[in-house]
Design a protein around this nucleic acid. Structure first.
Lengths: 208, 208
DNA sequence: GGGAGCATGTAACGGGTTACATGATTGG
DNA sequence: CCAATCATGTAACCCGTTACATGCTCCC
C-alpha cells in the first residue's frame, strides 16, 4: 500500500527553498548556481531569506534528480566550462501545483530585535534604544533597496510581459512592508523615549 | 592564545532560541519545560517562531550545563515529580549582555505567500487569490490573538511592575505588525483583482 | 471507557550555515 | 600585484522538527 515514489511524495520532498530556486528558473532563463545566488539576493531576499550559495547548489542537484531542471555545460571562457540550469516541463508543472495548492503556511518570523525589547527590563534604556535604532536603519536600507529594485525592473514593459507583473506586485508589497517595518521601529523608539520621560519625572498623583 | 572556554565563547554558543527560553525565565517564575512551551505559544510566538517542545527541553539542558539556569524537582501530584527551572545570576548576566550588546541581526522572514504571488505567472488568478485570502485570514487571527493577549495582561498594574511594561510594548508592536500584515494582504488581493479587471477588459490604446 | 491535558524525554532526519578548497579572469 | 568577481563543490556541524515512547490525572 505504500507507494512512496509517486509525484506527490516527490513534491513533498522539496523544501520551500527548493521551490524558490525553481521559481527563479521559471522566468525562463538558463542560469548557473552562481547567477541564481545573485538573483536571489536581488529579488527573493525582500520576502524570503536568501539561501547560502552552497544550498543553492545542493537544491539544484535535488531538482535535477527529480527531473524538475535540466543542465548542460557551456563555455565560461576559453579554458573553463560552467553549468547552466533550465526548468523542465515537469518542473513547471510541479511548481505550478505547489503555487496553487500547497497548504498556506504562516510566514516564518524570527524578530530578535522585538525579542530584545521584550526583555527590556534587563537593559539600560539607552542601550536598548540603540538596538532599535540600528534596526530602524536596517529597515530604512531595505526600503531603499526594494524601491531601487522596483525602478530598475520598471524600465520598460511591465504591463506587456505577463511574467513580470507579479514580481512587480510583490516588490510593491515589499516596499509597503519595509516602510511599515521602519515606522514600527520608529514608533518603538518613541515609546521607549516616552517611558524614559515617565521615569525621569515620575507620576504626579502620589506626591500630590 | 586560544582561550575558547571564556564567557564570550559560551555566550556565542547559545542560539537565539536559547535566549528566548532563558528570557521566559527572566521574568522570575520557576517553570517546567511544559510551562515554557505554553508560555512561548502565548507570548513569544507573536514576534519569534515558537520552538518545538523537544527543543525547549534540549535548550534547558544546554542552559543548565552553562550554569544559566538551575533546576529542582517538585511534586507534581502524589505520585510524580516534575522539574522546574529558574534563571541563575550568571544566566541573568549573560542574557543582559546579549540583549544589550549582541550584533543587531535582521529579522528572519520566510514569506511563502509572497513567494507564491511572485510566481503568479504560473497560477490561475482565482487560485492565487484564494491563497492570499487564506493568508489574510491568518493575519486577522493573529491580530485578534495579540489583541486579546494585550488586554489579558493589562488587567492591572502595567505601569507599576517595571518588568511588565516591555512585554506590553512589544504586544502593541505586534498589534501594529499584524494589522499591517492584514492590510498588506488585503491590498495584494485588490491588486490581483485590479489585474484581473485589466485583463478582462484589455487596454484601450491599441484598439483606438 | 476514552480523550484531553500534564509532563519528559530520545532518535532520526532534514534543512541550512560556515568553513574549506580550488582556480581563472578582470580591473585598478 | 592584489583584490574582487566568477564559478563549483564538499564536509562538518548545528538548529530544529516530527515521530515515537511512556504514563498519570481529570472530566465527560
Amino acid at each position: 500500500m505504500e507507494s512512496a515514489r509517486d509525484n506527490r511524495a516527490d513534491a513533498a520532498s522539496v523544501p520551500a527553498t527548493g521551490w524558490a530556486v525553481l521559481g527563479l528558473l521559471s522566468f525562463g532563463r538558463e542560469l548557473t548556481g552562481y547567477d541564481l545566488k545573485k538573483w536571489a539576493d536581488h529579488s527573493l531576499r525582500f520576502f524570503y531569506w536568501s539561501p547560502a550559495i552552497s544550498q543553492i547548489y545542493s537544491e539544484l542537484k535535488r531538482l535535477e534528480r527529480l527531473g524538475y531542471v535540466t543542465s548542460r555545460t557551456v563555455a565560461q571562457d576559453e579554458l573553463r566550462n560552467k553549468r547552466v540550469y533550465a526548468i523542465s516541463e515537469e518542473g513547471r508543472l510541479a511548481l505550478t501545483e505547489w503555487v496553487q495548492h500547497a497548504p498556506v503556511e504562516p510566514p516564518v518570523l524570527k524578530h530578535s530585535v522585538a525579542m530584545r525589547v521584550w526583555l527590556g527590563h534587563l537593559a539600560q534604556p539607552d542601550e536598548l534604544r540603540a538596538v532599535v535604532e540600528r534596526h530602524r536603519e536596517y529597515a530604512e536600507a531595505m526600503l531603499a533597496d526594494v524601491t531601487r529594485s522596483e525602478h530598475s525592473t520598471e524600465t520598460g514593459f511591465a504591463d506587456e510581459d505577463p511574467a513580470r507583473v507579479y514580481p512587480q506586485l510583490v516588490i510593491r508589497w515589499g516596499e509597503r512592508y519595509y516602510r511599515s517595518e521602519r515606522d514600527l521601529a520608529q514608533q518603538m523608539i518613541e515609546d521607549l523615549d516616552h517611558l524614559a520621560a515617565l521615569r525621569a519625572q515620575p507620576a504626579l498623583p502620589p506626591e500630590l
